[in-house]
Write a protein that binds this DNA or RNA. Structure first.
Lengths: 252, 252
DNA sequence: GCAAATCGTGCAAGAACGTGCATAAAGAAA
DNA sequence: TTTCTTTATGCACGTTCTTGCACGATTTGC
């Protein structure tokens, strides 16, 4: 096994699971733990992981400095949500992923070895997935909205209309058990509605501050949510409302 | 066994498996490991693989290194060409910009105070322009080709067909006074042709190594070029041919 | 505070590497 | 054809890189 292959596998596992164990990697690779430690040290030096006792964890926040607008906020929570969301995906699926910092974290958490078809209108997400050799990437073009960091408008809607997906990873602005999913921007909401319409299921990952809030523009009814990924600290009384309406709750 | 045959087989295996081992190739080809190492060194020099201890791996697509691989080549020249090209632009214009490292340099050279409408199928260029508040940015979506770092295919062609531009900043693979502009990839050439068709003028910026070379797929006739931006050291005999066919020559 | 696990460092063996040189084959020039 | 040049290849040599082991230091859990 080439040194480079080990590094690649370690990077993938870090992205997928957020942490690796030195001993586990050693037996998996069939090399001594010393060699694994050397690998981890090198990756850490390159900023691709953070060394901890017993193994390594994914680099603190995303040092690669993505574009993200609200990205600076609640980075760790979003990373946890992202990992839990990626665990819901299975190979061969087709996904819509729209814009938003939580969705960008999800895209970055998608491991390199997962083969998916992903259609997104977000530049940041498209760039994050552009080097995943197994992912068939569809860019949903149109007028670029620099506030959203994604494309919206008639051209984008037309592109969405031509596709169908198994899952729609919906970046939510507001989430309320009675009003459902809502967005702050009209054009943004249009695109989300189109994606929802052409998807079999909807998965939403939200931080606590989005729960039980609502924005002006309606995107989807609460009973359209199939998977809801939330923090462990999410108020169970709110979650119960969604569960009653058919959502499956997943804790990050 | 011919050297070229070995190179081809190595390329194929890199594409299929992502990596090759020097020893394995040596026994497979029935040559010494020295010869294989020489092969790998040559391929690495041509950017077709990355040399690692024990063998070689497929070249990193385009994201792991910040701004692409070919970008590393002739950076200063491309920056000079980019500045000279941007000087040809005027406010209010609508531009097509397709993919390529020279075009990426041009996009980065566009000043923040210039208000333009830009339509591009390149992720890198779209990202570079995403924070220019005065630029109306249109992303030309479709199937993402990670080799080009841009979208191609039917959806992209349809998006281009809906637009018209004053200028098309054409990223050229080969440029010859008799054969005109040519590209290495069929799908890439299709998109370029569509952009050329829907533009009033074409501007091309090329480094010297592209001059008087040709690739398989025809993109535009030589007399379709309105502005040709070249290095000061470009052979004047070649430039004269283009000038005769109506191109305006600009020196970077 | 103690024991066990984990860590970093130095070291040595072996593998892989690059370079220089000689040989052989292929092609160009005489 | 003959001779010269170019190119490809293999071998020898010294160098560099990787890896596993030994040893002492550090961290962790109890």
């Amino acid at each position: 096994m080439l040194t480079d292959e080990r590094h690649q596998i370690i990077r993938d596992r870090l992205a997928a699971e957020g942490r690796v164990l030195a001993g586990e990697l050693a037996s998996r690779f069939g090399v001594s733990e010393d060699t694994v430690r050397r690998d981890l040290r090198e990756l850490a030096k390159a900023g691709q992981c953070r060394r901890v006792y017993g193994g390594a964890v994914a680099p603190a926040p995303f040092a690669s400095a993505p574009v993200g607008l609200r990205a600076g906020h609640a980075v760790e929570e979003k990373t946890r949500l992202a990992r839990a969301t990626v665990a819901l995906l299975s190979r061969g699926q087709t996904l819509f992923i729209d814009s938003g910092s939580t969705n960008a974290a999800i895209a970055r958490a998608i491991p390199r070895h997962l083969d998916l078809t992903v259609a997104t209108n977000s530049l940041e997400i498209a760039t994050a997935l552009s080097d995943h050799a197994l992912i068939e990437l569809i860019v949903l073009g149109g007028r670029f909205d620099r506030h959203l960091g994604a494309c919206v408008g008639a051209d984008t809607l037309a592109a969405v209309a031509q596709l169908g997906a198994d899952l729609f990873v919906l970046g939510s602005c507001g989430l309320d058990a009675s009003r459902g999913v809502t967005a702050f921007d009209s054009a943004e909401a249009e695109v989300k509605r189109a994606m929802a319409k052409n998807s079999t299921g909807i998965v939403i990952a939200v931080t606590n501050d989005k729960l039980a809030t609502a924005a002006p523009f309606r995107v989807a009814r609460p009973d359209a949510i199939r998977h809801l990924v939330v923090e462990k600290t999410a108020p169970s009384v709110i979650l119960a409302d969604f569960e009653r309406q058919g959502a499956e709750i997943h804790f990050a």
